[in-house]
């Protein structure tokens, strides 16, 4: 008989990191498909370049530091895809390359690789790119016009035959003073993705499909996105003069929904406990709307998530959860009596 000696925990699971990441890739392909339909094949190229350079950056890092290859867990692909989906559909291709290299090498690998990064690599890289090439990162093309031929529209990103326009976020921001939503904001368009914006963030319905997929396979914790969205909605109600008319436009425009499903839920940069998760996500939601309303930028989701990522170690420290901890049973009365006696 063969006896195995190992330390606890002894119960295993079939859900490996690689499987989780493949589920993430499938979930990310919903907004990717929507983005390609809305913005054409160039958007697909952007996301592909981001994912490919993320994988190459991780391989290069492993080679430089002479450590075993870690790309098999597919987390680099996920990071690259999230970053690519967070970029405008008409960015020059050096932007996703630099962003992915920054995300993988500086944010993830230098701190010890998967599970040890202090902040979400994709969110950090997006903020890095936004501060580096502000002009490029804030020029968004309009959705494709298919009326002049499908193929011509699909390749318009390559031929530069597109029109850039303001995103709904800019309209919401400029109208915040009066408190009256401009006519350009139509909820159905926001829901279907017929607006300008980053590749993955425009189509709310695709993101919701990805959310449902991830919930079915229990990849993400529902508490994070739900408390993030709830806090954002409440903050929009309080901070905008228009009140409740601003709640849905706030939730559906920009990267808020995408961030809620794919970025807030990152395992290594969210707290371990339920209370910590709610505080973390709610803080990010409040900060997102605060940034949108009062900062110089239109979008605040990635900066808010990045800021709250930094508080996660503190939240885990303040709300500790020992391994295998269960709520204590109420102390029996006899003990107290015995003490008094």
């Amino acid at each position: 008989m063969k006896l195995l000696v190992s330390s606890s925990p002894h119960i295993g699971t079939k859900l490996t990191t690689q499987k989780i990441m493949i589920h993430m890739i499938i979930a990310l392909s919903f907004p990717l498909v929507a983005g390609v339909v809305i913005f054409g094949l160039y958007a697909l190229t952007v996301v592909f370049v981001a994912a490919a350079s993320a994988v190459l950056a991780e391989m290069l890092y492993n080679k430089l530091t002479k450590t075993p290859f870690t790309i098999k867990d597919c987390s680099a692909v996920v990071t690259g895809m999230i970053l690519g989906l967070n970029l405008p559909p008409n960015v020059p291709l050096y932007v996703p390359v630099v962003g992915s290299v920054f995300a993988i090498m500086l944010v993830k690998m230098l701190f010890g690789g998967i599970g040890k990064n202090f902040a979400n690599p994709a969110a950090t890289a997006r903020v890095f790119l936004l501060l580096s090439w502000t002009g490029v990162m804030r020029s968004y093309m309009q959705p494709l016009d298919y009326s002049q031929g499908v193929w011509k529209a699909l390749v318009s990103g390559f031929t530069k035959q597109y029109i850039t326009s303001a995103t709904p976020l800019a309209d919401i921001k400029s109208s915040a003073v009066t408190g009256v939503l401009p006519d350009s904001i139509r909820l159905l368009d926001l829901f279907l993705g017929r607006t300008g914006g980053s590749i993955g963030e425009v189509c709310a319905i695709a993101i919701l499909l990805g959310f449902i997929y991830l919930l079915i396979f229990r990849i993400i914790d529902w508490k994070l996105p739900v408390s993030y969205l709830a806090a954002s909605a409440l903050s929009a109600l309080v901070l905008y003069r228009g009140g409740w008319t601003y709640i849905l436009p706030t939730l559906l425009s920009g990267g808020l929904l995408f961030g809620a499903v794919y970025m807030v839920t990152d395992y290594s940069t969210s707290p371990n406990t339920a209370a910590g998760k709610v505080i973390f996500a709610a803080g990010a939601g409040i900060l997102t709307v605060l940034f949108r309303r009062f900062s110089g930028f239109d979008e605040g989701a990635s900066i808010a998530i990045l800021l709250m990522n930094l508080i996660v170690p503190l939240l885990d420290k303040w709300i500790p959860k020992p391994f295998g901890y269960r709520k204590p049973v109420k102390p029996e009365k006899t003990a107290k009596e015995a003490k008094n006696g």
Binding site: Y94, V98, F128, L131
Partner: peptide, 15 residues
């Protein structure tokens, strides 16, 4: 044309 303005901001200084 490709200058990354983050490097002349405080964040870039720390990096």
């Amino acid at each position: 044309d490709f200058a990354m303005s983050i490097f002349i901001m405080p964040a870039g200084a720390f990096l």
